[in-house]
Design a binder for these strands. Sequence first.
DNA 1: ACGCTGACTTTGCGATCCCTTAGTCAGCAT
DNA 2: ATGCTGACTAAGGGATCGCAAAGTCAGCGT
Lengths: 192, 192
Amino acid sequence: MNHMNDDGPEVAGPDVMELQGAFARRDDWQVKGWCRIERALDVIGTKSAMVIVRELLYGGTKFDELARRTQLSDAVASSRLKQLLADGIVERRPYQEPGQRTRYEYVLTDRGRALFPVLTALMDWGEDLEGDPRGGLEVTHRGCGAPVSAVVRCAEGHEVSVDEAAARIRDEAWAVAARERGRKASPPAVDN
Amino acid sequence: MNHMNDDGPEVAGPDVMELQGAFARRDDWQVKGWCRIERALDVIGTKSAMVIVRELLYGGTKFDELARRTQLSDAVASSRLKQLLADGIVERRPYQEPGQRTRYEYVLTDRGRALFPVLTALMDWGEDLEGDPRGGLEVTHRGCGAPVSAVVRCAEGHEVSVDEAAARIRDEAWAVAARERGRKASPPAVDN
DNA sequence: ACGCTGACTTTGCGATCCCTTAGTCAGCAT
DNA sequence: ATGCTGACTAAGGGATCGCAAAGTCAGCGT
């Protein structure tokens, strides 16, 4: 394990990410709750949450719109909206139509709208997945009319494919120290 | 749809997508299996599938690597890998280390690697989510070293925010006809 | 021949998701 | 006051997810 970068034949399939620095020893970094992907999925990892956000992005605001258009039951829509509310993805606003009592509409917060790339990436990926040869939706850039897709781009503006990407620990010195600390302070801190 | 764009007060919250064409009557298009997002989630909508793909992107290939690094149980890792295999996201390749018996390694297919934007978008979104002030991972562009993120971009190269996006039906004439057909042929075809 | 190891598979369990059906509850209409 | 409607909430149930522990199975080492 001291010489992990060149110990295998590694014939085919290096077309994934490169692990840099201490993270190259991948097995040293199995900490629960460490991965942002997992944390994201803990919040919006259910199908019902995703499709509700989808409808909110399509402009739905009222409870019955959201429930009907997502084809979720009232019960699921209700509890999921409550959870999305608690997680800061939607907020409720009172409104009143003439002759109606006060109701609430649901709108996405900034954090909710920030899910746009996630939904778009899923939509792109779902395209190659058998199904709609023609009936599907298309999301376009209003104004120029061109279809949109989710791409991975670096801060310098280059489009980045998987094999051009590298993963590393952001603040490695701190993380190594924290790991040492955690190891001594509370041995089972990883799992609980 | 004939007069749907200006029928409400619509005071606050138009900062989501615009629905164009026949899709502006959103309620006319509740068809099960119609949404690519849902179809995508039927395949990779579980946390276990996502984290396995994550590890595969990080270069893990062997069964025990994947199970250990994802912190999944053997059982879950096994059945999820089997499903990913069936769905064409991973493929198995036999390999043999000297003095060992033939084993299989798992590698992503093109379709699996195409999940890179999805995982990246989730990672980005998970960032604002309380947790790691410093300990987290960072994915960078190998070469220029700049951090990457998932963005929505149109075919013309413009970066597109939610409120600059529009959703419409790809082949509207066909879709309307198909809907009429379906309505006559099998009334409950929407729900079954 | 025998044991060991890595890679699964099986079994049994609790948690979560989502559904259907049946309430509740506020307040406008009558 | 009574009914009605829209917006939920509650209860019960099936499916799926994920876990831990135990079992299987191939083949290398001895």
